[in-house]
């Protein structure tokens, strides 16, 4: 009876609501990333991007954005030039960068 009324008003079951809320809350809690790990993430992003483009290594910024129902990792990098062909692997890309 109560259930039927709830469904009529399109109200979600409280168990489902709890689960959805916890998914977001735990995501936010776990995203409290330490500066060391953040530095690693930056380096990894640079390594991958360097395969495809020449970038200003010092320009990279990585931050976490927390909204009401989402969490996002936002990265901003200045691109100098895009390669016509991707370099074979991130490691090679770094080498060529260093030797240049």
């Amino acid at each position: 009876m109560f259930d039927a009324i709830r469904r009529f008003f399109g109200e979600k079951k409280s168990g489902e609501v709890a689960k959805k809320r916890m998914q977001i809350v735990l995501l936010h809690d776990r995203l409290s990333i330490s500066p060391e790990v953040m530095e690693e993430i930056k380096n990894d992003i640079l390594r991958v991007l360097s395969r495809y483009m020449e970038i200003d290594q010092k320009s990279i910024k990585v931050s976490l954005e927390k909204g009401d129902d989402y969490a996002a990792l936002v990265s901003n990098v200045h691109v100098r030039r895009v390669y016509r062909h991707a370099l074979s692997s991130p490691e090679n890309a770094q080498k060529s960068e260093n030797s240049a």
Binding site: S14, G15, E16, A18, K19, M22, L26
Partner: peptide, 17 residues
Amino acid sequence: KMVKRGDMMSTEDICSL
């Protein structure tokens, strides 16, 4: 009973979280 009627997170819900 509460899980059945949807008013409590289920074992599966909690494990996936």
